Amino acid sequence: MIRRILAFVEPFIIALLGTVLLASVFPARGVWATVADRTADAGIVLLFFLHGGKLSREAILTGMRNWRLHLATLGVTFLLFPLLGLAFRLLPFVPATFAAGLLFLTLLPSTVQSSIAFTAIARGNVAAAVCAASFSNLFGIIATPALVALLMGGTTGGVSWASVQRILLQLLLPFVLGHLLRPWIGGFVVRNKQWLGRVDRGSILLVVYAAFGAAVKEGLWQRIAPSGLALLTVLCLILLGIVLWITTLLGRAMGLSREDAVVLLFCGSKKSLASGVPMAGVLFPAAQVGIVLLPVMLFHQLQLIACALIAPRLAARAYAVATPD
């Protein structure tokens, strides 16, 4: 069991924590802060370009047939989650900074890689998981900034036209270009999947370093006590537990097959760190990005651990049903 968890969690968590530690001890200053910001921006562009190149048009067309499942997944991701985020913001014991980060977390799209991997482990509908996760990320490029503008305008000072331009130039345009160039770069992307995965994660680490470095210079760790981190962890666990429970009940209420219910469970309950980090860098002031990303980083690790425990159990149940004594 521990090996299953570590297989999904260990390498990137270590790199992520190491990056936060590096940014906390040696934040980029002066000209190096500008270099870090520009490099992070380039990493964001590359990240979304590669995401566009990975998205198969055939998968989109095939996935449209399972519209009930995909609408349910999008509904959980961009309706249920934000409602829970707004409810958490009303809790009197939740600091405003944590409430903003939790709300931003709930506005993000689903993960792709881990959602598909856990669906496969649990013997779910892998093809549908590919489509559901891809649709979520594609829709999220537009939906997440729009929801941030609608629900967090007072927190962020509003999303300015400059932010909209940055979203278009850094997120949407590279994604569209990557997808349009897929006939020429698709083979390269598939052949170099492992190497490009490292580029993906490296881009995220660059943004995290720049974001936390800026936040540390503004006194991030002076404003957050260990008890605050503990509270934030508990809130993320509660949020995850609620969504896992609701997606399970929703799959049953909709009469989905076991395989499709697994897709709803894993694709609907996750939030993407890969999308959240660059979007936060575009949507929020540099000094605010670090603290906004704390809930995203915590939730990301917790969802992986929880799903690493759930997926093998679902697979065992499916095997027991398929091979009765």
Rank of each mutant, 00 (worst) to 15 (best):
M279Y: 09
A274E: 04
G255E: 02
L231W: 14
L264H: 03
A230S: 11
K270V: 00
T248G: 12
V263T: 05
T248D: 10
L264G: 00
K271M: 03
I246Y: 11
R223M: 11
V243H: 02
S227D: 12
R252A: 13
C236I: 04
P278Y: 04
I238Y: 12
G228M: 08
V262W: 07
G255A: 01
I246H: 07
A230I: 12
L240M: 08
G255Q: 07
T248L: 13
G276A: 03
T233I: 12
D260S: 11
L256V: 08
M279W: 05
A230E: 12
L235Y: 10
L231I: 11
L265W: 06
A253F: 14
P226F: 09
G268S: 01
L229A: 02
R252Q: 11
L256K: 07
L240F: 10
L231F: 13
T248K: 14
L231K: 12
L235N: 06
M254V: 09
G276F: 02
D260F: 08
K271S: 05
L244V: 07
L235M: 10
C267G: 00
L256E: 04
P226W: 08
E259N: 14
C267H: 06
L273G: 00
D260P: 10
I224W: 13
V262K: 07
I224M: 14
R258M: 12
A274D: 06
L273V: 05
V234C: 07
W245G: 04
A274Q: 03
S257H: 13
V277F: 06
W245K: 13
G241K: 09
S272Y: 05
L231M: 14
L250P: 04
L229G: 05
A261K: 10
V234R: 08
A274K: 06
R252M: 09
E259W: 15
G268M: 01
E259V: 14
S275I: 07
P278Q: 00
T248W: 15
I238N: 08
L232K: 01
L273T: 01
I242C: 09
K270T: 01
L264F: 09
K270S: 00
K270N: 02
L232A: 03
L237M: 08
S269A: 11
D260G: 06
S227M: 13
V262S: 01
P226A: 06
M279D: 00
V277G: 00
D260Y: 12
W245E: 10
G255S: 02
A261L: 07
G241Q: 11
L231G: 06
W245Y: 15
E259Q: 15
R258Q: 13
V234T: 13
I242P: 07
L265Q: 10
L239K: 07
I242D: 05
G251A: 01
S227N: 14
G255V: 08
L273K: 00
S275P: 10
S257W: 15
G251F: 04
L239I: 09
G276Y: 01
V277Q: 03
